[in-house]
Design a protein around this nucleic acid. Structure first.
Lengths: 340, 340
DNA sequence: TATATTTGCTTAATCGATTAAGCAAATATA
DNA sequence: TATATTTGCTTAATCGATTAAGCAAATATA
């Protein structure tokens, strides 16, 4: 089966003996085209199975109606849910999305940005890879003059719209919860400080520890890549301390799961001996044994607000320097792993 | 910051007092352009931060170098891994991918196909939604004359290239494994028969049961949406039977997890009282207690072969009626839930 | 030295859809 | 009835990149 020649506006125009311009206007319900012509055009368009050529109209209009999305990975419930809700809002406004994943790699992230810009997206909504420190690729998006919106993994220095939860406050909430359960030596397996959200979680943890006059022991604060595997490694390190913690707050559910595996393997009672708290409310936190206390990040709102912010920016005639920083309140989901 | 005017070939041409055609050729290293001009063009292109306009070149060349991907959902390890490996192969061949998810909805899947065709992708690689029965949207892709490749969730009727595992044989393998563990009443929580892979798994299960002269009890074979929640419901139904099974083979890991939850809640020993087997090797199967025996689907190969098949099809001058049906052998991962 | 070939470009058309400008016919208003 | 306005189209240019065709100058070959 050879490639069928696709139907163009010109084909419809020839069929009806009118100009392609009239056909274009009829398809868009221009008020200067008669109802009779509109009907005829739409009838013939259907007959010939006309599909508009997006490339041509995007090129002419200078607008692709595509929004690029970059996430560290799609196989996390949080990102998948953000995308789903974002897409729903954008679809209603006539935009389609292109999803790309960086796999937490800086190089891949740069490549994704290039691909999206090359595809002429009208804007980019992104969450940064763990590895990303150099921001020049993001500056490139800004210099193109198209909206850039960051969520969850953002960067203050970039000066763009941002949607995320209050990580500093979330850490406070967790530490207070653990104190209320009688914990006295609270450890934190955090992410790398260079990533803003992890830095905020670490700051929140440290400040809360001080606020409630708990021992501030440097051995209790570890920086991690937050993979399941590294969660195991860091938990093992904590257990080897002369004076191990009675509670561990892990900055990601995956690493918390690794920590839980180690605790289970070593027959350490959770929560009786050590309380465990994760972050992100990944589905598995509710079905492992014991179920893991964690923080819900409101992925629905984050996705929706990100989409709405994009729409707002794209509709503005002149780029306003005022930015939105949407900091949502998170929610602590208390489960067995800290409920003693 | 107003939208900066983007640099075009014409800008470079004006700068060097040559024609845009010469610039275009220089950028593509045409042999009929002198090295001196090529160097000058590339220098100026860099100076002016030239980025080719994909829309224009794609429109002119009638080729977008984009491949559309449709998956039921991205937040499953299987699909995410298939995409990752597919992308890696396609990137090397100069293609970029656009990921869309149907969320198992037929309507959303149709919309995704429209979006991808509208974006002028050069081909589509898809795995069908559970809901999909009507195939007219897929026929639409075929009628455009662009390659369509299905993986995992395919359809014989469509007559397109397909990559997946041998589901029929996998069921045999599972039943044989359970028999070797001494199981005598093996139940199957399967997917809907209308989906080919689930139909094959059911057929494999039924044939294996007959082959080994096990009791063929209609109550032991259930059709399910295979969500975690429905896995719970179906497991509860099986436990209410007068003569409950001593092994349950579930056609998806998520539903198997729901089944496991019910078994744990009712203090039924797994594997001692009832053996459990899932399908798909989702990461959580290894870290729940007990860990779940499951089937590995070789997502890496599926992704790579799908990409290579696309490249093969797109490079063919004339569309050949001969199709590739790649049926890979699956692998049984034996874990605690069936290892008595 | 005369002709053929190669080199290095330019010109002009094209991919489809859109839109500013404009024109004739139909209709409305004075 | 004479002029103004509206209606319903057409014409032609445009968005950038690409490419077939072609031409003049440079170089190779007889």
């Amino acid at each position: 089966m050879a490639n069928k020649k696709r139907t163009t506006l010109k084909d419809i125009a020839n069929e009806l003996n009118i100009s392609p311009a009239a056909v274009s206007k009829a398809m868009h319900n221009d008020s200067r085209i008669s109802d009779k012509t509109k009907e005829a055009v739409k009838r013939v368009a259907k007959e010939l199975d006309y599909q508009p050529n997006h490339l041509a109209s995007a090129l002419r209009k200078g607008k692709s109606n595509l929004v690029g999305v970059i996430v560290p990975r799609t196989n996390s419930h949080f990102f998948s849910s953000v995308i789903e809700n974002m897409e729903s809002v954008l679809n209603k406004a006539g935009y389609n999305i292109i999803i790309t994943q960086s796999n937490e790699s800086f190089k891949k992230e740069c490549k994704n940005i290039d691909t999206l810009l090359y595809t002429q997206v009208d804007g980019i909504i992104a969450s940064m890879a763990n590895e990303t420190v150099d921001l020049s690729h993001y500056e490139k998006i800004k210099s193109k003059g198209i909206p850039l919106i960051l969520f969850d993994r953002g960067e203050n220095d970039l000066n763009v719209d941002y949607i995320g939860i209050d990580d500093y406050e979330s850490s406070h909430m967790i530490v207070e919860h653990l104190i209320s359960k009688g914990c006295k030596r609270i450890a934190h397996i955090g992410g790398f400080r260079r990533t803003r959200i992890y830095n905020n979680r670490i700051r929140g943890y440290v400040d809360a520890i001080h606020k409630y006059n708990l021992p501030h022991d440097n051995h209790l604060l570890l920086e991690s890549s937050l993979t399941l595997e590294d969660g195991r490694v860091k938990m093992q390190a904590l257990l080897k301390l002369d004076n191990p913690p009675d509670a561990v707050y892990v900055a990601s559910d995956y690493a918390a799961l690794g920590a839980l595996q180690v605790l289970n393997e070593q027959n350490i009672k959770v929560p009786e001996t050590i309380c465990l708290v994760g972050f992100g409310n990944e589905p598995f936190t509710s079905f492992v044994r014991p179920s893991i206390t964690t923080v819900k990040q409101h992925s629905k709102q984050i996705g929706e607000i990100a989409a709405e912010t994009f729409i707002k920016r794209i509709s503005e005639d002149n780029w306003k320097p005022k930015l939105d920083k949407n900091i949502l309140k998170s929610e602590l989901i208390i489960r067995s792993s800290s409920n003693k």
